[in-house]
Amino acid sequence: MSDTNRNRLMLVIAIIMAAIYLFPLYWMYITALKSGSEMFATPPSFWPSEPQWATYAFVWESRGMGRYLWNSLVIAFGSVTLITVLGVGCAYVLARYRNVWVDIGLFLILMLQVLPASLMITPIFVGFSQLGMLNYPRLAVIIAIAAKSMPFFVVLVRATFMAVPQELEEAALVDGNCWVGAFFNIVLPLARNGILVSAILIFMQAFGEFVYSKSIIQAVELQPASVGLNSFMGPNTNEWNNIMAYATIYVTPILAIFVLLQRRIVSGLTSGAIK
């Protein structure tokens, strides 16, 4: 097989894979626009004959989506802030010092990453309830998410810091700065991109977080959109168009952020890999 044919075959395979992967998303968007009878038609239609735009307004109003999305935003911003403030310092230390304890720390951090949320929730729930944290459920969820996503952030940002040459800091020290100043003047601006990208990834994770929010937040008015979506569905659900409209409103902003920033995100993730 010649090189061009090989490339074409690869391209076709890639397109098919992408189509399979993106099909649910496509299905979500069109189902949201279908009418009740069209939803259950056999064979299914792949393009809505009469788009029902009113579904969006109906779902937004009837489910009180504004409140759900607000809660999601509060939780996501809270987690990102907490993780960034704590994680940047941690990542910096792990990037600059090399000894046995740092290796052990790094190993433990990666171990934390392995444990699934559904396993962690029971001890977290018991602990939080004994501390009385369940009275502040959104704060409790923020702390739980921070604990879970911190390793991911630290590992990514550590790689960013390692790409900043130590000589630059030393130059700043000799130039008359203290090490705190050198960190804020020199290291932080140079690591800004990597930190920003990691923070965005964390934000998207936290915005869609479900397990902790579902378990910890009992009050409906404090629940995020992921839990709201779940409570929409029951054993006898048949209003799929409404559910899909809800899902559309929920994920489209995140998708838009990702598409807009994807170039930066990809370059941020691979920075430090070469050179």
Binding site: E167, L168, E170, A171, L173, D175
Partner: peptide, 30 residues
């Protein structure tokens, strides 16, 4: 005594110029 209080200047092998600053900002940083 920490480096900043020794009043010495150093030229590094890699030059260690601050990449996010212009030449003028590099010169005037200290």
């Amino acid at each position: 005594v920490p480096p900043r209080k020794r009043d010495i200047a150093m030229v590094f092998q890699s030059y260690a110029l601050y990449p996010h600053m212009t030449v003028e900002q590099n010169l005037t940083y200290s």
